[in-house]
Design a protein around this nucleic acid. Structure first.
Length: 548
RNA sequence: GUCCACGUAGCUCAGCUGGAUAGAGCAUGCGCCUUCUAAGCGCACGGUCGAGCGUUCGAAUCGCCCCGUGGACACCA
């Protein structure tokens, strides 16, 4: 919420107090920008909302509010009742324009807010197994998760970006056996990959590295020690690759937590003991079960199998306990759609441990289909395997890839249109936004002798007012997008801001030596637009290009 | 079969804590570069918001019930 909306809210609340002697909270008063022209700059539906409580007609309430409104306090120019009981407010243009100075002063900070209040929040995303390349589902999660953390930071949260490394489960043994087989193949020794092993090109490459470095040292050596070597080496290499690809995708993490360390430190054993002590487990058929149904899960879950090994759930619980022990008061996870069934049991475990249901929130990242020329692309042409993040970036660039993934709400299936992302034309929303930024930069380079603006009273053109109003909206958008963890709202904002600028540009000449005063004011407006656009793009990790 | 998500213009999607005449891009058609970047702007065309019922002064938005699509339903991770 910006200062104008805040002022309006406060004034409305005061007016209601005077007229009806009731006190209502700020969040009950909704201020919005009307879609249609001629309905003022801002409007509220508060008169209709209160009709029941006040036992009065909306139109009466509205006119009573208007009567008591302090025009001066919120720079109000005009107030009128419209439709079924809306109150439309018209604000002085000079007040709208005062945002320019705010933006110029706050610069890179413009749009940020403090609702997070320094709360320690942990956001875990991607967490891909270190057993192969990142595919498109991971890319969506990476772009989305990273953008969410940027939004949370901009909203005053103390954010920890976390990647959970599954380096202990069965899949790692599979990786080791796969490596061992590929390694043996290099020395012309026949060895089949395990049935559900990893067939990827990356495993071959790692095997080649081992062969190069250690020659035939591990040939015909099935010892436990050798297997451990393949495990450790494989994980290290795969992880190195993941980190490199993610960094290239502009996705960084503060903490990489290894599952193995949770086993080594005894945290996993302890997690099970804790649940046992709480009396939320029982034994059946030689296995230990967790009474997750007690906390809303649809069936109970096995913790320790009858063969004595743990299910994945135990280390996962240990991991989440570990997160809370590190002092976070809120955990957010982004999981792939195929994991959505695990949410109830994870939440159940945390509730058993005394946490609130919403201390952990899990958002689901829906599937991605790659589409080109209207046809689904299932495999990479180069490798024959699933298309990787690296390949996608090579094909369309990091900016387009990130923008496309963040553009759509994550809870819907998404078709990534390769042809469109590749296009360097106006069909492509990324270029549309970047072009706006570059265009502004170009105009600002040519300002010459035009002096700095001292006021903004000449900014009265329709296009200028709409642009000013929308710049005013930015911090509300950031706040809303952060709270709802919905960076696609930032994309919507970017598209509209870019459109308003382009439209302004088509109508208003900025550098005009015949009208120096107006030019200087328009230059200030452009500077503010540029900052807002750049900050918005930064929130989704897309570069604001100076020239194109 | 049970559970979850989704269904909005020819296509891809916004809008969903209920609000005014449901929005954008693409596609289609027509205009605009001797003027700061035409990767742009303007105009037009395009809708039973999957169907029905309900709650409400008011429903794309909330509830119920169908239909359709996708996903999840392991002593795998």
């Amino acid at each position: 919420m910006n200062d104008i909306e805040k002022g309006l809210k406060e004034t409305i609340i005061k007016a209601l107090l005077k007229a009806y002697e009731i006190e209502i909270s700020e969040d009950k008063v909704v201020i919005e920008i009307p879609k249609t022209k001629g309905q003022g700059d801002y409007s509220t539906n508060v008169a209709m909302q209160l009709a029941k409580v006040l036992h009065d007609k909306p139109s009466n309430i509205a006119s009573n509010i208007i009567k008591e409104m302090d025009y001066e306090a919120c720079s109000l120019e005009k107030c009128e009742i419209a439709g079924p009981g809306f109150i439309n407010f018209t604000i002085a243009n000079s007040t709208l324009a005062s945002i320019i100075d705010v933006v110029l002063k706050e610069d890179t900070k413009y749009g940020s807010n403090t609702i997070g209040n320094g709360i320690k929040i942990n956001v875990e995303y991607v967490s891909a197994n270190p057993t192969g390349d990142l595919h498109l589902g991971h890319a969506r999660g990476a772009a989305w998760g990273d953008s969410v953390t940027r939004l949370l930071k901009a909203s005053g949260y103390d954010v920890c970006r976390e990647f959970y490394v599954n380096d202990a489960g069965n899949q790692i043994n599979k990786l080791a056996y796969s490596l061992e087989a590929r390694y043996a193949n290099i020395f012309n020794i026949k060895k089949e990959l395990p049935e559900d092993g990893y067939h990827g090109e990356d495993v071959k490459l790692i095997a080649e590295e081992i062969a190069k470095e250690y020659k035939d040292k591990f040939i015909n050596d099935d010892s436990e020690e050798t297997l451990r070597f393949f495990r450790t080496y494989g994980i290290a290499k795969e992880l190195e690759k993941l980190k490199k690809d993610l960094r290239h995708f502009r996705v960084d993490f503060d903490v990489w937590t290894s599952e193995q360390t949770l086993h080594d430190s005894g945290a996993v054993v302890k997690a099970l003991e804790t649940l046992k002590d709480l009396g939320v487990t029982y034994e059946l058929d030689g296995a230990i079960w967790f009474k997750s149904t007690k906390y809303g899960d649809d069936k109970d879950r096995v913790l320790k199998k009858s063969d004595g090994s743990y299910t994945y759930l135990v280390p996962d619980i240990a991991y989440h306990i570990n997160k809370f022990e590190r002092g976070f008061s809120k955990l957010v996870n982004f999981w792939g759609a195929d994991h959505h069934g695990y949410i109830p049991r994870m939440k159940a475990a945390l509730q058993a441990l005394g946490k609130e249901k919403d201390d952990l929130e899990v958002d689901i990242i829906q599937m991605v289909r790659l589409v080109d020329e209207g046809k689904e692309v299932k495999m990479s042409k180069r490798t024959g395997n699933a298309v990787t993040v690296r390949e996608l970036c090579d094909e369309v660039g990091v900016d387009a890839a990130r923008y496309f993934f963040v553009q759509r709400a994550v809870d819907t299936h998404f078709d990534f249109d390769l042809g469109l992302a590749r296009k360097q034309s106006n069909d492509n929303p990324v270029y549309y936004a970047q072009y706006a930024h570059a265009r502004i930069c170009s105009v600002l380079k040519q300002t010459g002798e035009i002096p700095e603006a001292t006021s903004y009273e000449l900014l009265n053109d329709e296009k200028e007012i709409v642009l000013l109003k929308y710049i005013n909206e930015f911090s509300s958008v950031v706040k809303d997008a952060a709270i709802t963890r919905a960076p696609h709202k930032v994309c919507n904002y970017i598209q509209k801001l870019a459109a308003l600028f382009h439209s302004f540009y088509g109508n208003c000449k900025v550098n005009d030596k015949e009208h120096l005063e107006l030019s200087s004011q328009r230059i200030a407006l452009l500077k503010a637009t540029k900052i807002t656009l750049r900050n918005a793009l930064d929130l989704i990790g897309v570069e604001a290009i100076e020239k194109m």
